[in-house]
């Protein structure tokens, strides 16, 4: 089971992801509300995996991803996006994201993506 950092400006989305992941036995070691906070928490908490929302105010998920990968090129980041954001997902994958998920969350897909990234 993995130690996971959940990054999303929406408390409702964080709660939903947290419930899915904790129910499967993962540990949520921290939560962050934007890309800047995510980097600080990544450095201090050293999680096994990060879920990162793309659309966030202030520092976006793409910037947050770039900062984390610059600090640790082995970082395992799964991007979260609304549907219809293909260009942003592609940009994230080109910048080191390992996988992506779309909202609204489906528990099976969340857990499959996390398992795949952890196994790689």
């Amino acid at each position: 089971m993995a130690r996971i950092l959940v990054v999303d400006d929406s408390a409702v989305s964080r709660k939903s992801l947290k419930e899915i992941l904790e129910h499967a036995g993962h540990e949520i070691v921290g939560e962050a509300g934007d890309g800047h906070d995510a980097l600080e928490k990544y450095k201090s908490l050293k999680p096994d995996l990060v879920t990162m929302d793309i659309t966030m105010p202030r520092v976006s998920g793409i910037e947050g991803l770039k900062n984390i990968v610059a600090a640790d090129e082995e970082a395992r980041v799964v991007m979260i996006s609304a549907l219809g954001q293909g260009a942003k997902i592609l940009e994230a994958l080109q910048n080191g994201a390992r996988h992506y998920l779309t909202k609204p969350f489906e528990a099976d897909k969340v857990l499959d993506a996390v398992a795949e990234v952890l196994a790689a």
């Binding site: 659309t55 105010p57 996006s81 609304a82 549907l83 219809g84 954001q85 779309t102 909202k103």
Partner: peptide, 30 residues
């Protein structure tokens, strides 16, 4: 406010997903 924002994200994500089938890509702002 978070929940209402998430409803908009889902609504507009579905809308943009349909638009992107016609090669129109728009970015969702928060």
């Amino acid at each position: 406010r978070d929940a209402l924002g998430e409803f908009m994200n889902v609504q507009n994500g579905l809308f943009l997903s349909k638009l992107s089938n016609d090669w129109v890509e728009l970015e969702l702002l928060p």
